[in-house]
């Protein structure tokens, strides 16, 4: 996974806390102060109750594999077939990611397998949250 060619996210004011957290080794989510709803992707208000008082917190980083495909077509920054995955975070939200430290095969990638977050350093500024099998991988 070559650093220069993968799409590098560009933070916006409403997502800066997320990318600051990733650089600090944390997966940061938001929780509504009024109703307690935890949500992703970032926004400065609660999608459940529209409350504007929300807090950023560090998620556990634990997740399970919700679904995926294994892409066989060429893509900038990726070598060989690789999985594009959806994971369910322990706190509730779902997000897209890659699964690292794991064979990229249907046999190795079992739905509902336990995962933990780790970070891929794309640039000095942007560390991308990705997931690996819980316990440090194979």
């Amino acid at each position: 996974m070559d650093r220069p060619t993968r799409m590098v996210p560009r933070p916006t004011p409403d997502t800066q806390h997320y990318w600051d957290g990733a650089r600090a080794g944390e997966l940061r989510l938001q929780r509504c102060d009024a109703c307690g709803h935890v949500y992703f992707p970032p926004r400065p208000f609660c999608p459940a109750c529209a409350g504007r008082e929300v807090s950023v917190f560090a998620a556990s980083g634990r997740a399970t594999l919700a679904s995926y495909v294994i892409n066989h077509r060429p893509a900038p920054g990726f070598d060989g077939p690789y999985a594009i995955a959806l994971v369910d975070l322990e706190e509730g939200p779902r997000m897209m990611t890659n699964i690292v430290d794991c064979e990229q095969t249907p046999e190795a990638l079992q739905l509902d397998m336990a995962l933990e977050v780790t970070f891929l350093e794309l640039t000095d500024e942007i560390h991308l949250p990705v997931f690996r099998p819980a316990g440090g991988g194979a």
Partner: peptide, 14 residues
């Protein structure tokens, strides 16, 4: 751009 494309989807098939 921030939350999907960095993970390598290549259009609708992925």
């Amino acid at each position: 751009v921030q939350f999907e494309l960095p993970y390598g989807p290549v259009g609708p098939p992925t």
